[in-house]
Nucleic acid binder design. Sequence first.
DNA 1: GAAATTTTTTCAAACGTTTGCATTCAATAT
DNA 2: ATATTGAATGCAAACGTTTGAAAAAATTTC
Lengths: 343, 343
Amino acid sequence: MNSSRPVTIKDIARRFRCSPSTVSRALNDHPAINEDTRKNIQEYAKEVGYQRNEVSLSLLNKKTASLGVVVPTISNYYETAVIEGLHTVLQPMGYTLNICVTNESYLLEKESLSKLLSNRTEGIFLSVSQETYDAGYYEHLESVIQRKTPLIFIDREYEDFETSRATVDDYHGAFAAVEHLISIGYKQIAHLKGPNGLTVSEQRFKGYINCLKKYNMPIREDLIINTNFKVESAILPTKRLLELASPPDAIFGVNDQVAIGAMRVAKDKGLRIPQDIGLVGFDNSPISAYTFPSLTTVHRPGRKIGMEASRLFLNQLNGSGDFAPESIVLPSELVIRESSLRI
Amino acid sequence: MNSSRPVTIKDIARRFRCSPSTVSRALNDHPAINEDTRKNIQEYAKEVGYQRNEVSLSLLNKKTASLGVVVPTISNYYETAVIEGLHTVLQPMGYTLNICVTNESYLLEKESLSKLLSNRTEGIFLSVSQETYDAGYYEHLESVIQRKTPLIFIDREYEDFETSRATVDDYHGAFAAVEHLISIGYKQIAHLKGPNGLTVSEQRFKGYINCLKKYNMPIREDLIINTNFKVESAILPTKRLLELASPPDAIFGVNDQVAIGAMRVAKDKGLRIPQDIGLVGFDNSPISAYTFPSLTTVHRPGRKIGMEASRLFLNQLNGSGDFAPESIVLPSELVIRESSLRI
DNA sequence: GAAATTTTTTCAAACGTTTGCATTCAATAT
DNA sequence: ATATTGAATGCAAACGTTTGAAAAAATTTC
């Protein structure tokens, strides 16, 4: 019976009539092991496909080399870019990434964290779910903190936690976007807002509002409509905007997806972009450069955020006892393309 | 000194002057434990934030409840949809997903698999890297097979392995796409092909070729150009196509990204879509429904593939000894939109 | 009040590996 | 021939948990 039980160090020891210690040392090139013994054991190990059981080592050394990544979703360009960034830095260092998707649910987030802790994950990257954020829950984070497991916030953060965080400067990105529209000469700028309560939504919204204020432009409640970040969630809101008695002459979308949805609706209505209506998105997703017209947007360095977050984690890990949390805020950058360039 | 060493069962045992066994049983509601003892221990455990060390359990039970997902990239809509599908089924069952990105590199793939096996992952979902596929390497899979760790191929497969696999019927999808273009009346259909050697590229290419053959249409080498799936890789090839003495009147892109790139170039050249040139993509990515004109494409059920792959894994896991690998081929489905509807 | 029974707790082994210390054995030095 | 050295290997504990079997304690029975 070709049992599939993995070969252990004991099996090898039995085969060579020696102790497990000897096998262990032989496999690890310990100098105190006889050259012949070493070679024989190594050869045999290779032959039978021995592979060290890392689980037992984890138990022994209390090192699992695994990290948790807890995010609301992975079906956006930005989120995957962040994960790629984490990966780029951490995979080469031997870390394994455990991805947990919360679907914006508090319960799933709580369970994910608990599971990660039980698995003795060595660090957790967390972008809190909307539900968590809305409700202001934070108890589930206490145990992470208490365990002193490094916890790095990504994008969505709690102000009152002593943890490191890596975020993009959404506020100034949004501000720059709106300022750009104003500088071109657009007068009635609408905003397709993201879900209420999320930092990213609110920061961009604040950027939008404050920029309008700065330039003494009226703030019209009817030009601000919610979306859920998805392209289809922009369709109806945009239609409503364009049917207003006094419709906007520009739209600032909370991300590229909704801006592209808006673009579609505007074109369907026969409006010319950017002549009749200006458009700006957020994210600088790959597609945004190739829409027609190409979409003015705000670049959001997802990969870089992932890499910076990794750095923050490593700092905390290697830091001496007097660890001080760091906050990294990466600048977002306006990318001007055709959809806003009315001349 | 507020040590962060996690509380163990032994700590609790010491506190209650009882044996670890009692604590273990108390925490697991074992019936043989005195009611008072149980309550006291459970209360105390909660108070000090005891959390079972799953690593030790993994060692004991040889069950890690973790699964490997090895993919070339996670920055495409399709790949993330697959992962979401896996997640949807497997996370509720208590599995943790270890995501490994290979960047199409054989070496990284090999290392990832080896790592997963060392970590005693209970199953592996693999979409082989292009390098692996090109070179026809397969030795690194032997150890997975030998360990009898369930291995499920996703999309890209090796014909000669006794493993389950879940793939999309790319061939017929491509065939249907081209047939549709022909039925509309397009005569010179170009193909923006994916990278050579990859199953998805080649299957779609084959569908394209065979469809042309079936309808006795000429196969023009100059209308077939390679891309790398990314939107920008479609720009130059499309330009070249459109500058031909006898340019195509339709383009079938290997995915939505390149089709959208082609759309952009065609529009820049002043061509009307679908009147002057028809366009079809592949994937049915969210954005494809909202381009202007909307993009005819072939739906590729990524989420479903992930869910089916999970099912295959579970079948293999629960199957009796006489496991027979299954092959699931999900149909792809033509989604007709504006970009090909010349009337 | 002793025997029988039931309830509750402890013991010990197991999972796979590493590692400080002890041991063995052979070779060299005296 | 004996003590000394050095090389090679073995022993045992440790990591945290579970679990069958044994032991101890409490309760019931006659």
